[in-house]
Amino acid sequence: MKNIILIILIGAGAFFSPKRSYSQGCVAIRQFSGIGNAVGQLNVQSKGDWNLSTNYRYFKSFRHFRGTHEEPNRIEDNTEVINWSHGVDFNIGYSFTDRIYGLVSIPFAYNERSSLYEHGRQSRHTTYSGGLADVRVGAGYWLLSGEKATKGNLALGLGVKLPTGDYNAESTFYNVGPNGSSEIRPVDQSIQLGDGGFGITLESQGLKEFKPSLFGYYNAFYLLNPRNTNGTLTNRSRQSEAIMSVPDQYALRAGLFYGIKSIHGLGFSLGGRLEGVPIRDVVGESDGFRRPGYVISVEPGLSYMLGNVTATLNVPVALVRNRTRSLTDIIESTPDNFRHGDAAFADYLINFSLAWRIPKKVPLVFNSL
């Protein structure tokens, strides 16, 4: 029974350690959500363990929301903004002790953005960005270790986000220059590769056994971004939104994981996910342009473990999409001119990851399920 529990914990730990997150279309939720332990790093770890993982994510955003109200006429009128985003993270994790772990995450992204309004409202064109995004370095601490951790565990994590991604990426914009000429300008905030700020990430994650093969999990994450604005021009008409803001970010995941006894290594999950950008930062000023908002999703998933390699697939499907009013919307609204910006969101996200655990110790021999 202990061997069975440990096998399930390995699969669950690999599956539920924090996934890289997903910019939700025009709301610039960056491609990470937590420093935590590396994908595949178990909630039962041993000193000297290494964890190597990679995660791929994709989404297409095109549905416009103002608040929680969808504006279907944007699609009907062919005025919607469409973002396509591909991202790949490479992660290296190491267990310094049976409880303390470290992680380096190196993300890359490629984005395309098709719009009408950014190109003189005359014809639809596409802008691009691609390359290294914001690197993260961090560490965490599991409260329990060894046999005490097989029924559940809780970890606290702390990290830093480095401004390695280009936060002034540029592309060609058409029909915006003199006599309708094209110009090279910074791309929209939603497809910038970084935000230009040194950030601090705070996280907690946990796993709890309810009965054999059934576990609960959660991840909670917050990114503190003290920098106010990053100097990148938006080319927006309102002076208060002329420069891009450097916003905070948050995410919360929770749900259930079930290990299939009849198929060794296979597990399914179902949970909920909340992620977003707040109107105001916790630390520092919140000037400049940002699209605050949040997404609530249902998150089904599938994982399969073969030896020390784990493959996971999860597809969060949006239930609630809310483009909240920005600080500039609130400050500049008048009784005769109520301001509330909109944003485009995705219907779903596709996330696939591979994780390889390299134990220092000789692997345990498990009994067959």
Rank of each mutant, 00 (worst) to 15 (best):
L202V: 10
S204K: 04
Q205W: 15
G206Q: 02
G206M: 06
L207T: 11
K208L: 15
E209V: 12
E209W: 11
F210I: 11
K211Y: 04
P212S: 08
S213W: 14
S213Q: 12
S213C: 10
F215K: 00
G216R: 00
Y217V: 03
N219S: 13
A220W: 00
A220K: 00
N225W: 01
P226T: 02
R227Y: 14
T234Q: 04
N235W: 05
R236Y: 08
R236M: 11
Q239F: 11
A242G: 12
A242D: 11
M244C: 04
S245T: 02
S245C: 04
V246H: 00
Y250A: 08
Y250W: 04
A251G: 13
A251M: 11
L252W: 06
R253L: 13
R253Y: 14
R253C: 05
G255A: 08
L256E: 05
Y258C: 07
Y258A: 05
K261G: 09
I263M: 03
G265H: 11
S269Q: 13
S269Y: 05
G271D: 05
G272M: 03
R273C: 13
R273A: 14
E275R: 02
G276K: 01
I279C: 03
D281S: 12
S286G: 07
S286M: 08
S286F: 14
G288E: 07
F289N: 06
R290N: 08
R291I: 15
R291Q: 15
R291S: 11
P292T: 04
G293P: 04
G293D: 03
Y294W: 06
V295Y: 10
V295L: 10
S297P: 07
P300V: 08
P300G: 09
G301T: 09
G301D: 14
G301S: 06
Y304G: 03
L306E: 10
L306F: 15
L306D: 09
G307K: 10
N308M: 13
V309N: 11
V309S: 10
T310Q: 11
A311V: 14
T312E: 13
N314I: 12
V315G: 03
V315P: 09
V315W: 06
A318F: 09
L319C: 07
V320I: 15
